[in-house]
Design a protein around this nucleic acid. Sequence first.
RNA 1: GGCGGCAUGGCCAAGUGGUAAGGCAGGAGCCUGCAAAGCUCUUACCCCCAGUUCGAAUCUGGGUGCCGCCUCCA
Length: 542
Amino acid sequence: MSLTLYNSLSRRKEPFETLTPGRVLMYCCGVTVYDYCHLGHARSYIVWDTVRRYLEWRGYAVQYVQNFTDIDDKILKRAREEQSTMAAVSEKYIAAYFEDMERLNIRKANAYPRATHALNGIQRLIHELEQKGIAYAAEGDVYYSVRSFPGYGKLSGRKLDDMQAGASGRVEVPESNHPESNHPESSHPESNHPEPNTSVPEPPDDPSAEPKKKDPFDFALWKAAKPEEPFWDSPWGAGRPGWHIECSAMVRDGLGEQIDIHVGGADLIFPHHENEIAQSEAVTGKSLARYWLHNGMVNVEGEKMSKSLGNFTTIRQLLDEPLAILEGDRFDPMALRLFVLQAQYRKPIDFTPEAISSAQISWQTLKAGLTFAQDFGNALGWTDLESDDSRAGLQNPSEVAQQAVQRFQSSMDDDFNSPGALAVLFELAKELRRAGNVINHVGKSDRDASDLRQEWQTLVDLSTVLGLEVLGLEAASAQEASGQAQVNSPEIEAMIAARTAARQSKNFAESDRLRDLLKAQGITLIDQPDGTTRWRQGSARP
RNA sequence: GGCGGCAUGGCCAAGUGGUAAGGCAGGAGCCUGCAAAGCUCUUACCCCCAGUUCGAAUCUGGGUGCCGCCUCCA
């Protein structure tokens, strides 16, 4: 069995072969840090984190690098609004990024280069492009001459001439800028509409508005500094880098001239990744990345979630606010992860209340399987959970465990088909939940303890590959909860005895009253065929 | 207008030539004084039309609908 992945470059699934056996160099386009991350970002980074985890599980040593864009017009705009600086705004949202990602159990990259730390590499790259006659300076700006790179358009599958026709249709109304040109945005501060603001410092990419460009599709590698903006000295004068060049430079500095996998949102294919290829490959003469992978968008009511449409929900908003659809509960971060992984990564997913509640409940099911050892390990005599050889059983995996791993792998090998992989996890989790319920209700298991042990261990292992884990805090509180139950035990036993007496005298009204009383405290009673009554805490378990 | 993608049950979503995984949500029954759990059963004309084939959700052609990119965007 071999791993196959869909390469945006060829628009086909291809077998995965690394540049160096056993090693994967992987670069992920990160965020521009001017605001909190929304669900679109969450999806992207959950997906690529999962890909990275899977590659490692498959035995590859993965070097994973993800950048922060911390030089950008939007950051500057935010800094002006907050009477702050670009650096301060960046720091704030980088910190927020890490907080959000940690909650989603996204593992840290090996490196997080920032544009502001990559100026040397950026300038070197621009210089080399200039030497090769592909970049040209114009009044303090430097542009990339798109027509000098024969391969331009190979990733996005478009031709410059085709685009020109389309672009002209969009840019035909430059007059719309004029009426508002002397109305700063503060003239309508109460407006929450995310209308494109015509007073932003940078004009839209209107070819006619940038006469410095030789060709309308040329793009900026370096931008001359405007007054009161941060700048860096350069051979072309004071200024700052364009957006695309930073990734070319950071890939080269952090991973080398050629990498295995370059990933990012599908909305980055053009122009960002196309330009990145043009920049890097024109200099090195080598293909930049062997595989280009792009995740699908998160939609809201059929439309892409995006800043400009204003239809976004931030990660922290979704996780922190009690939700009506969840009857006032908060959305579990792992349920968000599940929501993302329940779709194949290239397909769009719709963010709806139904999807949220479905994911939340699904996570409860999976969690019941994951906490099986914690809940029932004692009952099954699993005393070695903490010890090093606790996984010894997996040396000789059972048929069920082997098949689960095999099915999981063959799904994931097929272009990271996580929905298929999840089906395997759910089958294991549901069986464990069933077995646990039987123990609760009958007092003993109807399954062989070591078989269950293997199924549980397999579930935990495979879930971890997808980053679906019961994290520390939750695990601790679950244990705490079971400890509490012990404390109240005598009181409960007394009530059960009273109820048993009532039942024996057929006083069912009293018997039901006591049942309801305990139920209100979260205690569920289980009458046994032999007339005795068992109980357990927690009525929520489905 | 150009390029790309998607259409499977109430919702989500696998399946890429041999008569439909899984999740969520439902229905019926057995069991129970009532419960809880368990068990059994149960819900698909795979967007439409034509073609290839012994056989297609799966391949080919045409159509319809939706989405993304072409402008900052995960």
